[in-house]
Write a protein that binds this DNA or RNA. Sequence first.
DNA 1: ATAAAAGAGTGAATACCATTAACCATGTAT
DNA 2: ATACATGGTTAATGGTATTCACTCTTTTAT
Lengths: 240, 240
Amino acid sequence: MTALTRRERLRAELEREAKVVARRIAAEEGIAGLTLAAVARGVGVTPPALYRYFSGRAGLVRAIYDDITAEFIDTVERAVRRQDPDDLSAQLHAGTQAVLDWSVANKVEFDLLMGAGYAKVAASEEGIPVVIARELGGLFGRLFARLWNEGRLACPADEEIDPVLAAQLRTYRSEVGLEFPIGVAFLMVVCWRQIYGLVCMAVYGHHGFAFDDPQPLFDHMMDDLLGLLGLTRSPDLRLS
Amino acid sequence: MTALTRRERLRAELEREAKVVARRIAAEEGIAGLTLAAVARGVGVTPPALYRYFSGRAGLVRAIYDDITAEFIDTVERAVRRQDPDDLSAQLHAGTQAVLDWSVANKVEFDLLMGAGYAKVAASEEGIPVVIARELGGLFGRLFARLWNEGRLACPADEEIDPVLAAQLRTYRSEVGLEFPIGVAFLMVVCWRQIYGLVCMAVYGHHGFAFDDPQPLFDHMMDDLLGLLGLTRSPDLRLS
DNA sequence: ATAAAAGAGTGAATACCATTAACCATGTAT
DNA sequence: ATACATGGTTAATGGTATTCACTCTTTTAT
């Protein structure tokens, strides 16, 4: 039951609408082009009214940042769950493809979450830093953990890893809340480095004159990465 | 001989100084915080005066973009030339290390050249697109060409490459002005994808809570990449 | 039911910013 | 010496964020 008072309903409604308008403007004009005045026009109020909902422009950006994070993680999570629960290769593949597809389809949002925008948001607010890395790391980390438990993963032993790197991996592992050896975390980071590079290339497009479509490079990369994990590409991907 | 008139000297001086101030402000505040008014204050003129030197704010950004490109390429080129001319491994290693070091030391500039800033600059101006990719591709491409000529490079044959990817590689090769088979271009792109991913991680820092120092991951990556090219890490790197 | 309190919006004011136009002083060239 | 080109100025326009004082409405408490 909606024990909400009239005011609360209206407030929730305007806040939702303001964020929708803000998302649309950001997607069209970029974060730099996202102005309180434009959002105010879009929802039919004067700019100062928005200060009842967000703490200024920075607060508005922070608000849509949180929404975008949830949306991104949800998208990737759904793609993973759409696969055969026993086919880890298919799940890793689909999740990674979802990361690429969402990023290319939402370039401004990607930049905010994992690009230049991240540093700005993180610098101006507290409580941001680890969010996206933890969520995404946890999502893929659970798949890596299953691989590890099945004993199919060939990863370096703790002693083989450079001490400085080992310390970083331990920090990473504990921050993301994972249980496996740091060698597994190392594999995750090696994979992420490659995925992230490809996605950044596709999103920022400084090689777009030739590699307009990232899919062929992505397919090659997935074969590489799955091979690194001792897997082969699963034929029955359900990407629909 | 300076066949420059007094006015020309003063003009060149103010233009230089304005760009220096702009670079400083951009580095401190980010490109978004780079305002004509602040630059004008910095060089002791009123804002409209800068319109005699740059076509508005966009023109100023474009001007420092060009400077930054030249500076970046020059830095990498010097690092390569500092190595033994016959030690391709050392040259590749040093060049790549220079890319990382410069990018981390100049985050805002990196973003402008190869991150989110690139898309904005490229969208608003003509003649930009291929610059950075061509310069950097040419620099590393010459090293790959030498490797190829020495026959030490194990790369896929043309027929083994997916047709769509092959077309992209041909576009890339011709745009960058390289001569070798597209299999070599493929290796270049595979390497760049990994380097770029690591650099973006280091610059944008969404994993910075754990991987504050990118060097250990970089060292691992270089071993991988040099191995991919049939090389081993050269012991006598002169990075000083 | 009515009065007090809380909430949500407005308009005005301040302080930035970019950009253009009109204007003036000065260096350069004839 | 004079005419012109150049590089600067001030003033004006219009956009932005943000704060403050005020009003109207809704909620809450008596």
